[in-house]
Design a binder for these strands. Structure first.
Length: 260
DNA sequence: ATGGTCGCCATGCGA
């Protein structure tokens, strides 16, 4: 079973690239973030024609998340039930596996903008609510995966130049503590389960030739519960689509699960 | 020290 997360930065613009990628990489569940389109403009037919099901939570201009899947999702949930929020950032559904139901959560976590911003306060509140909800969700679903754009680089090795980046949004101690609190629930950073060779980054700024210089950050993650950790055989970052014409600024990240 | 690039949609704003 393959689970992928990809922040596409506008599904309108990126739909052809997403379809091309899915053709070459037929995963079981693809979590998309930053759709930037209202629900009524979601391109359901395009995914259906490829044999996929879809659930989505969109809004005009900003945010928006979707789950594209081989099997239809059950018990679909939009948003954090414990945090009133007009921004569409979270979508969860349950999918079958040989071990039983797997809960997959697609998350577009707030960016925070800057340490002084109200958006930063909102980010930390949002993560606190996510933590509290995940604690309950893990009791209900022992096989749980939460994938998405966390807008947090968990450690200095996830930042191209930690000294230059300094203490700023995406790396600040309170944000990293929020990420560690999720791991303390019994979740595991799939990428760090394996000896990795090559660059760890999943996002590169559009400006200053950041991708060419590999001046990136690792902010897109797949977190797995204990039961899924024991099934995980790989976690891969696909840099290829970032080299496309009109690319998203994020790369897709795939966790592979093997059920015996 | 400043602004660089995208995508939204028409103007600055968010990332």
């Amino acid at each position: 079973m393959k689970l992928t997360t990809w922040n596409v930065n506008s599904l309108n613009v990126r739909l052809p690239q997403v379809l091309d990628w899915l053709k070459a990489n037929p995963v079981d569940v693809l979590c998309l973030q930053e759709l930037k389109l209202p629900d009524e403009r979601f391109p359901l037919e395009a995914f259906q024609e490829m044999g996929y099901h879809a659930h989505w939570a969109g809004q005009k201009t900003y945010n928006g998340v979707a789950l594209i899947s081989r099997e239809p999702g059950a018990d679909v949930q939009r948003n954090l039930p414990n945090y009133e929020d007009p921004q569409q950032r979270l979508l969860a559904a349950t999918y079958p596996s040989p071990d039983g139901p797997v809960r997959v959560i697609c998350a577009y976590c707030p960016n925070g903008q800057s340490l002084e911003s109200e958006k930063y306060t909102y980010k930390l509140e949002w993560f606190a609510a996510l933590h509290d909800w995940l604690e309950k969700e893990l009791q209900q679903y022992p096989r749980l995966a939460i994938l998405g754009d966390y807008n947090i680089a968990p450690a200095d090795q996830d930042v191209y130049d930690p000294v230059k980046w300094g203490v700023d949004v995406l790396v600040s101690p309170p944000e990293r503590a929020a990420f560690e609190r999720l791991l303390a629930l019994g979740l595991h950073d799939a990428y760090r389960l394996f000896e990795q060779s090559g660059s760890p980054f999943t996002w590169w700024d559009y400006r200053r030739f950041a991708f060419r210089r590999d001046a990136g950050l690792r902010i897109d993650h797949a977190l797995l519960s204990d039961e899924l950790k024991s099934r995980c055989t790989a976690c891969d970052i696909d840099r290829e689509p970032r080299a496309n014409e009109q690319p998203s600024d994020h790369a897709p990240v795939t966790a592979t699960l093997s059920f015996s």
